[in-house]
Design a protein around this nucleic acid. Structure first.
Lengths: 167, 167
DNA sequence: CTTGACCTTCCCATCATGGTAAGGTTGAAG
DNA sequence: CTTCAACCTTACCATGATGGGAAGGTCAAG
């Protein structure tokens, strides 16, 4: 279900350079950035991107700068940043007078979030691996996995939802 | 914002044993299972749990079996299972004639999903760590992090959304 | 003008969970 | 029996990022 940019039913010979003074349509931007048109509109609605220039009929047209920002968003998503964080990153990116420590702080926060998430998943992985290794996996009903899930207090339990108390 | 089961404003001396023939209210089940009442209703609406017995006024009442199943769900969530998978696990759990291989298959699928997710996050982590280490983090605008995000094709790119093709 | 690919906005779905509102029930105490 | 706090009910909306689809307007080529 991935739309191939090459295999277009249109007889479009080449990507437009300056054919149109208006810029690229949202579809062209989508193909060129790897971000769906849907998401481009979404980012605009969320305020990540400035409102695109519109034709008289309401079509969005994008210049190279906008395309750059959309690619920027895509790259940041690749690193797992959330859209609110990307909004901040974009603001910093546009600001020539930014301090790199602000960017670094955002990145370190994201790094911490990643470590946290990875840790949680690894704990699941560990518990689950143990259970899987204990289960015969035959046609008998005995199953340590189900047994453990049915256990009131098990190794799986605890640490979840318990913060160090607020008073 | 976690409600302590001990610190109840009610003068309830002890948890009811057979005080009520009806069973536990949803709130008692929630306190006893660690699953919020909201979620218990949700699981019922989704078909994970059978419809609870109701009082004349519509209150849900639960017996020990139901409580057991709710705890079961909580444990399975701890392992990261999705609710559809938990629904299958519950069906197997209720079936005395199940084959443990069916349970094991579900668990292995979950294990695979965990590995996949962990791998993705670790790749993000790796890329981000490199970028963070390269960024001075001072009050100067130079920032390798932003530079890389603005790069058309970078190490961050690729491998995402590419499965090994069906042909 | 027709046609087909494209664009627009608007609504709904996912997944698991939480919040809130508006209203009815329960059970103990007065 | 009334009162009152704590409890229950359903229903709707929100999250975060993305996708799907409908209904309708626009653009470029023939």
């Amino acid at each position: 279900m991935i739309n191939n940019p090459q295999r277009l039913p249109w007889p479009k010979t080449q990507e437009p350079e300056e054919r149109r003074h208006k810029g690229m349509t949202i579809g062209e931007v989508a193909r060129s950035s790897g971000v769906t048109a849907k998401m481009v509109r979404h980012y605009e609605a969320l305020g990540l991107l400035p409102a695109a220039q519109r034709s008289a009929a309401g079509y969005r047209y994008y210049d190279e700068t906008a395309l750059h920002e959309i690619r920027f968003i895509r790259q940041a998503r690749t690193l797992g940043f959330g859209l609110p964080q990307i909004a901040e990153l974009l603001i910093l990116w546009r600001d020539p007078g930014r301090a790199s420590q602000e960017v670094k702080a955002l990145a370190e926060a994201q790094l911490q979030a990643l470590e946290q998430k990875i840790g949680e998943l690894q704990q699941m992985q560990q518990s689950l691996r143990r259970l899987v290794s204990q289960c015969h996996g035959d046609d008998q009903p005995d199953c340590p996995i189900l047994d453990e899930l049915a256990t009131e207090k098990s190794d799986l339990d605890g640490k979840k939802g318990c913060h160090d108390g607020g008073g």
